[in-house]
Design a protein around this nucleic acid. Structure first.
Lengths: 228, 228
DNA sequence: ATAATAGTGTCTATAAGACAGTATCGC
DNA sequence: GCGATACTGTCTTATAGACACTATTAT
């Protein structure tokens, strides 16, 4: 093992975990218990453990499990944020992840950390976050919106079985605007990602068909954007 | 300045710089002059210098200038590659960048490094590269192909002024298949990214209109894929 | 005039948007 | 029955593909 030249920046991972509660987009934050920014809300993340984590996604996963007891159903790299001034401890390089999960309350019996909480996206405007985390969330939201236009990614915010109406609500919560139910149905059909099951009642009216992901399929990417 | 817990992975940047020469896609490689993998061809990259580089893109830029005397006209983050086994020196985290430049021969009067060379993409199959760099190039190529379908990104492989025919050739070299000239013209028109200049002869026939990027425009993203 | 490349006209094909109309449920 | 939600039919719209046609240059 050779020695590494120069002084190295320190490397962390951060997670922007989204989910949908009451048909609105939420993001998971944790309250910092140590300096810097102690007391402030921040993205769940931290240092990689090179003895535990096989790679950076492993580290991101571990942080989410450790800090909120949640295992995302989708996780991808978002972007690296770096610089001398973003962390008072020194030059830092943080890889942000972008993740989705079916809504579940944060496991409160986790001893680990002070507090984890789902925040309404629209409530973040008036909240001061640690580091450049507000900016990171904005970037993640952009990416989520973009992907919702041309892929079936939003299904990862839903439980194993779901209805077309539920998926429509999720997509609309992400995009902040209505989409055509008909267009969504055509995509569900065309993607060939789902199988149908029994039935279910949603509220007042006719029962809705339940769908679930075919085992082992990849998320389909369409070659046109929808609702744009 | 607080101390950082745990042992940290070491962090590097790598560049996948593409360009077009003779209507074929090329990638820039450098020959390693030190272990590990000394003698092998590899992506131009290296350690970040926290006193020189404002952030990670700065570091990537500096590496390209230093190792080949080239300044990319487009640079974006690709993906982080990480793990215990990808570098014999230990647990490594490498942020790969994806970059484009109008073709120019490598500055040979650069004292710095052994050798930098443009390689034909199709010649890489039979070449052994250092680390997981072949895999990184494959990922970068996927991304480039994808973006060529819905954006004007390929113009960054061309000089300041260029013809529609040249842009068509670049896109075809990237995609490995023909596209409709008419479709491209429609996009040039619709994007409103370019202005026209005088004229020029390409080879045998009629003179072609020269275009150039309007100052300060962003690259347009269309909401359909082309040629797919 | 011919060959070669540049550029246009226009018809077809594909998938999304709009929205009326039908189906099935609880009450 | 009524209200509500689920689903279908189908017409319109937007943009890419195909490809014949015209334009302009060098020789």
């Amino acid at each position: 093992m050779t020695t590494i030249p120069f002084e190295q920046p320190f490397f962390t991972v951060d997670n922007v975990l989204f989910s949908i509660k009451n048909d609105t987009l939420h993001v998971l934050l944790v309250q910092r218990a140590a300096p810097p920014f102690d007391g402030n809300w921040s993205l769940p993340g931290g240092f990689i453990d090179i003895n535990e984590d096989k790679n950076v996604q492993d580290a991101a996963m571990r942080k989410l499990q450790h800090k909120a007891g949640l295992t995302p159903s989708y996780l991808e790299q978002l972007e690296v944020f770096s610089g001398k001034d973003r962390d008072p401890r020194g030059y830092s390089v943080s890889l942000a992840f972008f993740a989705l999960v079916p809504f579940a309350e944060v496991a409160s019996n986790i001893v680990t950390v002070s507090q984890a909480k789902w925040w309404l996206m629209s409530d973040l405007a008036n909240l001061t976050l640690a580091f450049d985390h507000k900016h990171i969330i904005a970037r993640a939201h952009q990416r989520l919106m973009q992907k919702a236009l041309y892929s079936m990614l939003p299904v990862f915010c839903l439980p194993e079985t779901f209805t077309v109406g539920q998926l429509k609500n999720v997509i609309e919560a992400i995009l902040g605007k209505e989409i055509q139910r008909k267009s969504l149905m055509r995509r569900i059909e065309a993607s060939d990602m789902f199988i149908q099951t029994e039935h279910k009642i949603a509220s007042g009216g006719r029962q809705a068909q339940l769908y679930q992901l075919k085992p082992g399929v990849d998320i389909t990417h369409f070659n046109r954007n929808m609702g744009a």
